[in-house]
Design a protein around this nucleic acid. Structure first.
Lengths: 340, 340
DNA sequence: GTGAAAGCGCTAACAT
DNA sequence: ATGTTAGCGCTTTCAC
């Protein structure tokens, strides 16, 4: 039904090889031949059959992007950023969501979708280094986030500990010392994974500023960091009777939930409690008050991760050592953290 | 390098056809044969080559989902919903973003990615019915949203006019009459497209309740409905000197921006101005005050749209007439719209 | 600079 | 219930 290379070749009076050369922009084709082929392509409305190309070449022209879910602002924005960069390079992105599920993360690593892509950008939240080693991917893989560190793969992430230290320092410099944290996890060790590293940064910051640790100021959550989780954690902290004059939330959605809960309790932000978020997502600009947040380099992460993966896909034989890229960070000041 | 059906067939002592039958769960295979084949599959770590399957069968097992951008809460949530439903049916979703660009929407309809999918869920925001007719897609296509109505394709959308009428009625019943609208577009006709239909619902509601139309209460935006656009439109309305005691925002992100702008101007929500949003996205629960919003049926839309497309993909010969499905709606009441 | 031919791995049609 | 064969449309290899 739709035209094939053979049809184009016949119409242009050349061989299929020549059509293939033109379609793939092989440079050594005589201009007159190229024109004849392109005319035939236009006349027949020919388009390459990607399945046939993939079958023969072993490449699909797609990369995977696996994140927990798109409705969380950070991942929605990250996905948009990756799509934009990939489009600039003519690469198609297959977005996959894992829903914080171990089974789905394993499926992403080993499942049939890896036969549809030339490489994977993977932001795990559940699997650990051992799981990755067991799966032992042989395709180009770039790890995102902080859940897994592996010397075997490229890795792009942020300076989590430093970023939270900067956030707490920002609060302390503005006169706050009773700093609660929202988003710590009981089920992961300090210093391990996104939550563990950010929590470690919080503990380090307390030490740096000579603030005594108070367990009642720790707001615990699971891996899911939605606003609702932030509200619940904030409620637990307040219920404990802890004295709190500032909150560092480990992402912006948690911060939004925490602010809502503070409001419910009749505590003013920033009058009674200052709040700082993490990721500087779009929503931070429109909270009440506008939310100060740490921009930990999401755009840079999207761009660098794509480029590292793309380089591996294009040159699979190149055995350069895996890279660890840490994005730059900055605190974006808004109304939730005034000087006292 | 990786095993093929021929390898499996050889090891199991059967023909490739039998391996294919087992892999494709063809029922009429003797149990002992099946077991032998599955053992060989496991031993060799065999996985089907999807490119070969697609080339031969003409199917890819993927559908496309084209939306403007994932960072807008509504589309992030919609994408998650579609991914979930598709997964339940063993279908892979290729998410594409069009960025409110005419060129990219045309590319979605006609570009090479349509060779990678068996069908398309398309939420256009720029193209019109004429563009669609010109592109004349022959693959299974389900339209989402209100931008294009076409008798030629299945269509799943919401009751936009009715939903906005319900929103305004909700405000009027609670004692408000000076109702501004945020998100109207000068560049589209009343009644056309998402913005045009929702704006039409606003005008109808004013008439129903005997409220005089006041042009100064109309907050204009472009196609992009982010919080920043809502804030700018709200600012323009307030700058005009219009008397406003309520706002109906044509989506939740606009509402969030409008609330932020009201705050900047020293107007209390809901004391001075009540606000109602549209879509009931996650963020509505955590604004200050919590945002009343019209749930226009996003989950239902995702499910029905997928099922319609899936049915067409599975039975391409079935010439049933295209369906128009309108999702149910409800107002979710929160603190931004108390009774006076 | 271009052509001829092989074959990527699978499914469909037909045979038994 | 299983085997045989052809061929999907392309890229690759090797000629010339």
């Amino acid at each position: 039904m739709s035209a094939t290379m053979a049809d184009v070749a016949k119409l242009a009076g050349v061989s299929v090889k020549t059509v293939s050369n033109v379609v793939n922009e092989y440079p050594y084709v005589r201009q007159t031949t190229r024109d004849r082929v392109l005319a035939a392509v236009a006349e027949l409305g020919y388009e390459v059959n990607l399945s046939a190309r993939s079958l023969r070449s072993g490449r699909t022209g797609m990369i995977g992007l696996a994140v927990p879910e798109l409705r969380l602002a950070y991942f929605g924005e990250l996905a948009d950023d990756v799509l934009r960069v990939a489009r600039e390079h003519g690469v198609t992105v297959l977005i996959e969501s894992t829903g914080y599920s171990r089974a789905e993360e394993l499926e992403v690593l080993r499942g049939f979708r890896r036969r549809m892509t030339d490489g994977l950008l993977f932001s795990p939240v559940v699997l650990d280094a051992e799981d990755l080693a067991a799966a032992a991917p042989t395709y180009p893989l770039v790890l995102l986030g902080e859940q897994i560190f592996s010397p075997a793969y490229d890795h792009v992430t942020m300076r989590n500990e430093e970023a939270v230290r900067a956030a707490v320092r920002f609060l302390v410099e503005r006169g706050r010392r009773r700093v609660a944290v929202i988003g710590a996890r009981r089920d992961v060790a300090v210093g391990v994974g996104t939550a563990g590293l950010r929590y470690a940064g919080y503990l380090q910051a307390l030490a740096e500023h000579g603030i005594a640790f108070d367990a009642a100021r720790v707001g615990w959550t699971t891996a899911s960091w939605h606003a609702a989780d932030g509200a619940a954690a904030m409620a637990a902290v307040l219920d404990s009777g802890a004295q709190v004059d500032a909150v560092v939330a480990l992402n912006d959605s948690l911060a939004i939930g925490a602010m809502a809960e503070l409001r419910v309790r009749g505590l003013a932000v920033p009058g009674d409690v200052a709040v700082i978020g993490f990721d500087d997502t779009d929503e931070a600009q429109f909270t009440d008050p506008p939310l100060t947040s740490v921009d930990a380099g999401r755009r840079e992460i999207a761009r660098v991760a794509f480029e590292l993966l793309h380089a591996r896909v294009r040159a699979p034989q190149d055995d350069r050592a895996p890279t660890l890229h840490l994005a730059g960070l900055s605190v974006v000041e808004r109304g939730s953290t005034p000087r006292l």
